[in-house]
Every structure is written in C-alpha cells, then in structure tokens.
Write a protein that binds this DNA or RNA. Structure first.
Lengths: 127, 127
DNA sequence: CAGCATCCCCGCAGATACTG
DNA sequence: CAGTATCTGCGGGGATGCTG
C-alpha cells in the first residue's frame, strides 16, 4: 500500500509541505484572495475580510511579503497610504485558492449537513 | 475598489470561509492527501506523514469524519485494525489539494529563494 | 492611517501513561 | 494496535496604547 514515492508531495519532508504550511493558516488564503483583483490598502483589507485584527493582518502580510507572494507600496503622504498587491508569483497561487472556494460553493452544504447529522458514535470509540 | 460582492467567497462570513478554516490546519490537507489512494491504517498514516503525533492524527481524523470527508472502519480483530478512507465527498477535495501540491512543486524554489533574499527592510517599517 | 510594542490569556500540541 | 486521559509549555492571537 502507499503508492507514494519518497519524493512525493505532502508526505514527510517534501517540498509541498512548505506550501501547505504556508496556506495552512487561518488568514493566508483569505488575504491573498482579497488581493486577487488588484492593490488594496491595509484598512480596506480589514473591512473586506472582516474578523481579522490589525495585528494578524500585518503579521500575515509580512509573512507573505517575505515569501515573495505580495509586494508592499508605501506612499509618502499624510495621512500615510500603504497598498499591497500580488507579485507575479503570488498571482499564480490564486487559481489553486479559487479551486478551494469553488469546492466550498459546491460542497459547503454537504459538509454542514454532515456536521448536523451528529457524530457517528457519541463516545467510546475503542474497538 | 473591491469588486467583491456581498456573497463573494472568502470575504466576511461567506461559505468559502468554512472550507478555508477546514483546510487551514497544519494536518488536514496532508491527511486527506495521505488517504487519496485508498484506505490506510492509523499507524500507516503516522509513518506516511511523518512528524504528526498520534494525538494530532486522531484529532484530525475525528474532525474530518465529523465533516463527512472520511469514513472510519474498525475491524473486530486482535490486534485491532482500523482503516480510514475518503468518502465520495472527501474525494472531491483531492483535486483542489493536488493543485496546491502542483503549485508547490512548480514554485516551491521561488518561495525559498524569496525567503533567502532576506527581508526588504531590516526594520522600521513606519512611513 | 499604518504599524509596532506590550500585556495577557486561552488553546494547541507534545509527552507520557493507561485501557481495550 | 488504536485510542483516550492528563499534565504542561509555548505561542498564537486579541486588546490596548503609542509613534511616524
């Protein structure tokens, strides 16, 4: 069993794990998606996304910037204006992310139904 | 700006957020991927994935089961044998996940390069 | 407006030991 | 072998206040 090769994505210390851990964050995908239509300001993202704190947003943006997925543009104005936009590299991640949203749109209800249907066994799973 | 509609995926309290938060977990995608080729035992997953603790694996499996993405099969044998497999619903998530791995395979190096290139500004981002 | 620093708490996740 | 229970720590992440 396990037809996975040693260099197979995802398992063990393969390159794909990097990406997963990059995406496997509450906000990463959401932020990237928020930038998918062009440059957006910090404050706009806050409202657009909804539910994210300034701290988490900045943190996420910094990480994405460090990973080369987005670019930061600070304009020397008052009041300050800072825009973020996808890099070409970052833009390539939008498609995969969009697939996730498509999946959600299609199967979201099914997941919710499963959740409602209640846990198979209340407790005591041994044996 | 923001050509996103109110019901648009990802932003605010849209359905896609459910999926993101489902996937936005260190192990969810990895476990699903591990099951993508057929039923796998608990212990096999541990070794296959590498780095996950029994506790986290069980926890992840339970959640996926609750969400209707995987199914649990416990065989009344000694020693006990338990297999997990994707449900049809869960199987539909493999494609999106695979896209992520494809992306990683293609762009993983670019991300690592960006990381090495160092942070744009060492410190003091204000202004 | 954007961002950093600080404080603080809750929960994730590892380690360990026990049961069926 | 599979799973649970308990303890513990570390860090994620919110709230707040200050700076440019």
């Amino acid at each position: 069993m396990s037809g996975f090769g040693p260099g197979d994505p995802f398992l063990a210390d393969c390159p794909a794990r990097l990406t997963v851990e990059l995406i496997a964050d509450k906000w990463t995908a959401v932020v990237l998606y928020g930038l998918s239509e062009g440059p957006v300001r910090h404050g706009e993202l806050i409202q657009l996304i909804g539910g994210i704190s300034r701290k988490m947003l900045t943190q996420t943006l910094r990480r994405l910037e460090a990973h080369g997925l987005i670019r930061r543009h600070a304009y020397a104005e008052v009041p300050p204006r800072v825009e973020y936009e996808l890099t070409p590299l970052g833009a390539t991640l939008i498609d995969p992310i969009r697939m996730l949203t498509e999946w959600a749109r299609t199967n979201g209800d099914a997941v919710l139904d499963a959740l409602d249907s209640g846990p198979p066994e209340p407790v005591a799973r041994n044996g």
